[in-house]
C-alpha cells in the first residue's frame, strides 16, 4: 500500500470495469476479503469503491477485535482513492478519530503514521502527538515521532529526530531502525557533494543475504549505481 501513491492512474476511471454483483453474504474472514480484493481485476479506484462497503461492514461486525481494527486501517489507507473527489481527508480524519477512540492501546497504530499522506497536512502533527501520548508501545511512539518530524522544519525537526534517536534508536523500522533513519534525515549528504565531478559518498550496508559491503569496495571499476525497487 505504501507504494500506491506511485501508481497514479488517471486513465483508470475511464477503463471499463467488470460488473460485480452485490455481496449478499457477509465476509467471514479478513484474509479471504483481502484475497478477493487482490484478485479483483478492476482499476484501483473502482476496486476500492467496490470493496469499501465490504470492509466497512466487516469492521462493524468485528469491532473491538484486531481484525476489526485492520479493516479500519485498510479503509484509512485506501481513502487515498477518494482524493480526486476531495473526500480523502475528511474520510481519513473520521476513520482515525474512530480508531483512536476505539483502539487506543493497539500496537497497530504505527500504520497511521506510515499512511500519513491521507491526513490533512495541518492536522498530522496533532494526531501523531495525540497517539504518542496515549500509546503504551515504543514501536507506536517511535512511528509517531518520525511522523511528527516529517511535518516539521529546522530546529523543531532536528530536536524531534534527536529525541527519536535517543529514545527509540534501536527500535526496528521496517528492516532498519529508527536510529538509522533519524541519522539519515538529520545528516543527509550535502547536495553539492552529489553533483557530477564529486567523489561519491561511500555507502555501507548489506546485500540480499545480509553480507556487509561498501560502495568503495568497487574502486577501480566503473560503477552503475542504481536506486531501484521492483514496482
Amino acid at each position: 500500500m505504501k507504494r500506491s501513491y506511485f501508481l497514479l492512474v488517471p486513465l483508470a476511471a475511464l477503463m471499463l470495469s467488470f460488473h460485480v454483483s452485490a455481496q449478499d453474504v457477509a465476509d467471514k474472514s479478513l484474509s479471504a476479503l483481502l484475497k478477493d480484493y487482490a484478485a479483483s481485476k478492476e482499476s484501483r479506484i473502482k476496486k476500492y469503491k467496490t470493496f469499501k462497503p465490504r470492509f466497512e461492514s466487516f469492521a462493524k461486525t468485528h469491532e473491538g477485535s484486531e481484525d476489526g481494527l485492520k479493516a479500519h486501517l485498510w479503509l484509512f489507507k485506501n481513502s487515498w482513492w477518494l482524493r480526486q473527489e476531495n473526500k480523502m481527508e475528511s474520510t481519513a480524519v473520521s476513520i482515525v478519530d474512530h480508531i483512536i477512540e476505539t483502539y487506543p492501546k493497539s500496537k497497530l497504530l504505527d500504520e497511521i503514521a506510515a499512511a500519513k499522506y491521507v491526513l490533512p497536512k495541518d492536522q498530522r502533527l496533532s494526531y501523531f502527538r495525540r497517539i504518542r501520548k496515549i500509546s503504551p508501545h515504543s514501536s507506536v511512539r517511535a512511528a509517531m515521532l518520525l511522523g511528527e518530524s516529517y511535518s516539521q522544519n529546522g530546529d523543531a525537526k532536528r530536536s524531534t529526530l534527536e529525541e527519536l534517536k535517543k529514545k527509540f534508536g534501536k527500535v526496528s523500522w521496517n528492516a532498519s531502525t529508527y536510529g538509522a533513519i533519524a541519522s539519515a534525515l538529520m545528516n543527509p549528504h550535502d547536495r553539492a557533494k552529489l553533483k557530477i565531478g564529486q567523489t561519491a559518498p561511500d555507502i555501507e550496508g548489506s546485500d540480499v543475504d545480509g553480507t556487509a559491503f561498501k560502495l568503495s569496495d568497487y574502486r577501480g571499476k566503473v560503477v552503475l549505481l542504481d536506486f531501484w525497487g521492483n514496482w
Binding site: 550496508g205 571499476k221 549505481l225 536506486f227
Partner: peptide, 10 residues
C-alpha cells in the same frame, strides 16, 4: 572493470 551496484527499496 565494470559493476552494477543497486540500492534496493523493496
Amino acid at each position: 572493470p565494470f559493476a552494477i551496484i543497486g540500492v534496493n527499496s523493496d
